[in-house]
Design a protein around this nucleic acid. Structure first.
Lengths: 341, 341
DNA sequence: ATGAAAGCGCTAACAG
DNA sequence: CTGTTAGCGCTTTCAT
């Protein structure tokens, strides 16, 4: 009795044709029944009965090919280790599901390239639109991609591309002002940088620079590759330099966690010896023992807004890109305190 | 000049047929060229030239439909907020990419159901195999699914299903013994429980019970839904009970973080007033300020092993399921200390 | 409401 | 090495 357990092999897939025959109707009718189109109650019943009797499973590949639409939104995000993307996804998924569409994911890796392949894979799948969070692609690359599939960038502003984010310059300012008010003057900024591409997520750095200029202090900037480990190293370097900073503003919370580690590595106490501010307000930052001061941009909402844009057919004639921008909010917790001395 | 920017509309997709015509060859040859089959150098060049001149993009939908294979592994994981899945994914992706296959993801949500729909979506996509991490589906459901598409369960053992994991009973024992050795007797366990399904991830709890029995102590168990918030509540309840535990062993690190929060909520100092042990050894657990004592199971490796199984065609005639089991390791950090008194 | 026929864009034998 | 001929499983007019 090799393999004859009722359910059968299921290797040879059951097709609509089979269901149609079993239900005594045409293939077209089965198709309609499955998509909730007008079908008589009798047929519908017969069809569904036949379908699950045969163990029929709708083949989305074939359906998408035939209908020329996938009803799917692609979502690329940079890093599975950065919780902020979970927030964005949560908001996105909520809206996309409500619209009865699907999401297909492509995950990048800040340690390995700019995620171009991951995004390409989304294009290959013929998604209706792509939402990008934390993309490392250059502006021109994004603009090129946008020509073949509508893009929505989260937390990133590029002229011709729809986007959702907060005013990062203001965010950078809030963070830095907070530190200045606490008496800090030697304030470093840990950023992302990809020299070969000639771009960065610059606005936060601008806000930082604005405030330092007003305070008559000079910027100290270190670069990372968007991983906690690299932030840890960058911070270590900063903190072992002759005139070490008394505060560090990290481009995001993940990097800030790296800074916290570096401080501990060097036996510095936070915030007594070093104040730290992040950006994103990820959940782990609020855990007692971390208590990270940060800038909140309501990532879930950004995901929702991005989803709405991705779902809304951009009006005819490539109208001008839509940019939705909100205000960030400073969240003061335990990693910031008065400057030493 | 409405929209005539060279690149064209790209709405009307370029097909293989177009490329073939432009290159002066047959459609079949284009197909071969794109799949690295034997094609003369001349044709190959002409084809690729024509292809990217026309902006051709290979349609995987059509390809999969025609070839009856997607070369894709589906990966379901429970929760985007639990870093352990990032580790598993990392290992999985490494192996799958090396094999030149693709991964399609389906993400669950412990707050909303058992992820059945997410897994179904993977089946709809006709993936070659599905790797499940943190699935909440019942054994029978998994067995049923396994009949239509090969499954590999990570960190979960079901008789008929391939799996990769560590000896959780041993892991539970290691964690609990550690606490007993520190003098704790009132040790609670925070678990996952889904009563309506009649199953749990039980092995860790068994290890815990084993040790408590040996120590002559009695178990104290609380249930959660696998979210940090619910662990926080469960712990709060435990910690405000008349004879509160001096130690809590959480089913995983994410839940342990919730316990840490609860302790802080109640003004309890860790580990002076309360010792905490997690399971998974996620990265954030090692951050100074958290320093979570935990059990490591090398999640990345589990992902790799699972990928290997998913890629290896299970031998003819449904042979017996393969189970790969490793040994867990206790990692002692700062959240555990001597029992009070 | 239902069915017939014509594809969607590609791959898979099989010839040549 | 190259082309021809059939489909893959479904959706879509367009009749009936």
């Amino acid at each position: 009795m090799a393999n004859s357990d009722g359910q059968g092999d299921s290797r040879a897939s059951v097709t609509m044709e089979n269901v149609a025959r079993a239900a005594g109707v045409s293939r077209a009718l089965v198709s309609k029944a499955f998509r909730g189109k007008g079908v008589s109650e009798a047929s519908r019943a017969a069809i569904f009965a036949a379908a699950d009797q045969l163990g029929y499973r709708h083949n989305r590949l074939a359906a998408s090919l035939a209908s020329q639409q996938t009803d799917t939104i692609g979502f690329f995000f940079l890093d599975l280790y950065n919780e902020v993307f979970a927030d964005i996804y949560t908001g996105l998924a909520r809206v996309v599901e409500r619209a009865n569409k699907r999401i297909v994911l492509a995950i990048g890796d800040p340690r390995r390239g700019d995620g171009r392949e991951a995004v390409e894979s989304l294009l290959d799948m013929r998604v209706d639109a792509i939402v990008l969070a934390g993309t490392l692609l250059a502006d021109e690359q994004l603009e090129a991609l946008n020509r073949s599939t509508p893009l929505v960038a989260v937390t990133r502003f590029v002229a011709g591309i729809d986007s959702a984010g907060v005013d990062d310059r203001l965010g950078g300012r809030l963070a830095t002002e907070h530190l200045v008010q606490l008496g800090h003057r030697r304030i470093a900024y840990i950023s992302y940088h990809r020299p070969e591409q000639g771009f960065s997520y610059l606005e936060r750095a601008r806000g930082y620079a604005d405030v330092l200029a007003d305070a008559g202090a000079s910027p100290i900037v270190a670069y990372t590759d968007f991983t906690r480990e690299s932030a840890r190293e960058a911070a270590r370097e900063l903190l072992t330099s002759p005139d070490r900073p008394t505060a560090i503003f990290a481009h995001n919370d993940l990097l800030a966690l790296g800074v916290i580690e570096a401080a501990a590595d060097l036996g510095l106490e936070v915030p007594r010896d070093l104040s730290i501010v992040g950006y994103d307000d990820i959940q782990v930052g609020s855990i007692p023992g971390i208590g990270l001061t940060t800038v909140n941009h309501r990532a879930q909402r950004l995901g929702e807004v991005a989803a709405e844009m991705a779902l809304a057919p951009r009006d005819a004639a490539q109208q001008v890109a839509r940019h939705r921008m909100f205000d960030p909010e400073l969240i003061v917790r335990a990693t910031t305190g008065p400057a030493p001395e």
